[in-house]
Simulated assay, not measured.
Amino acid sequence: MPTTQPIGIFDSGYGGLTVMKEILRKLPQYDYVYLGDNARAPYGNRSFETVYRYTLQCVEWFFEQGCPLVILACNTASAKALRTIQQNDLQRLNPDNRVLGVIRPTSEIIGKISTNKKIGILATKGTVNSASYSIEIEKFSPEVEVFQEACPIWVPLIENNEHNGPGADFFVQKHLHNILAKEPAIDVLLLACTHYPLLLDKIKTFLPDGIQVVAQGGIVAESLVDYLQRHPEIEQRCSQHGTRTFYTTDDVKDFDNQANIFFGEPLESKHLDIR
């Protein structure tokens, strides 16, 4: 039996580390287990069925580690797998556990940030095609218009550590131009991929004044604080020893080298085979 009951944080690769970093700032006392499914990444261009199957396998693994709560810190997994897992699988796996995503907490507040009520979503193809943000924002802010732009090259740029170089300028400018061409009055741009905060400074460089760029990490962290306060039956099951354990389904040396870019400090991971 597991000796701790950590909070699980899942991503298809590295991006969820930007969310975990913000969660640790708010809630450092809990135990955490991070899993990056790097061997099967990226998820962004995969089918709904494949993303669901991969994500479910990882959620089952988290539950086996004793996690009472799992955060899908991946927009694609949140868009393509979360609802099905919550509605169809949780009762079978463990009805007392919970699986949360990053789309709903972001959608709850993003409409309040916009003055013009015109929001741009920058995301992977999978998240854009799911229309998850349009659907969720409509629930909380029906007066807001949502415009989306898929940026498929941004993740490879970041994961190859090319995001700070001049080679990334063209692709950042291209997608910013595309989304503002859809609606010049956009005043809030949401980075709806957990990789994209690493491009934040470059994005701001090429934007006109008056457009606010929003990353998800802080929003998700604040939402988790609120969730644990409202759900003591879950919070009391989350162990508090301040431990952090990292797993990857790919090569640990490669993961550790890349992870520092996202997490902001060195870490050592363990290898996990998921079949």
Rank of each mutant, 00 (worst) to 15 (best):
A73I: 14
P2C: 11
Q236V: 15
Q236W: 09
T243Y: 12
N164L: 14
G217R: 00
T205I: 03
I85C: 02
A79G: 12
A77T: 00
L17S: 00
E138H: 13
V252K: 02
S239R: 11
L224N: 05
P166H: 04
F170C: 06
D31A: 03
L72E: 05
C58W: 09
F263H: 03
G66F: 15
A79V: 13
V146T: 12
I203E: 00
D169N: 08
N257Y: 10
I113L: 10
H175T: 12
V70M: 10
I179S: 07
H241C: 06
P232G: 08
G15T: 05
Y34E: 06
Y54L: 13
I158G: 01
R244H: 10
S134A: 08
K174N: 13
L190Q: 01
Y54D: 11
S134K: 10
I203S: 01
G44A: 10
A81R: 09
L199E: 01
Q236H: 13
Y34S: 05
I119S: 07
T124G: 05
Q57Y: 08
Q212C: 10
G16I: 14
L198K: 01
L191K: 02
I153Y: 08
G126W: 11
E108R: 14
I203C: 00
L93Y: 02
A221C: 10
V220T: 10
Y14V: 14
K117T: 12
V188G: 00
Y54S: 05
L90K: 04
C74D: 07
F171Q: 07
A131Y: 05
A185V: 12
T50A: 07
L272T: 03
H271K: 09
N257S: 07
P166K: 05
Y30H: 12
Y196M: 08
Q57P: 15
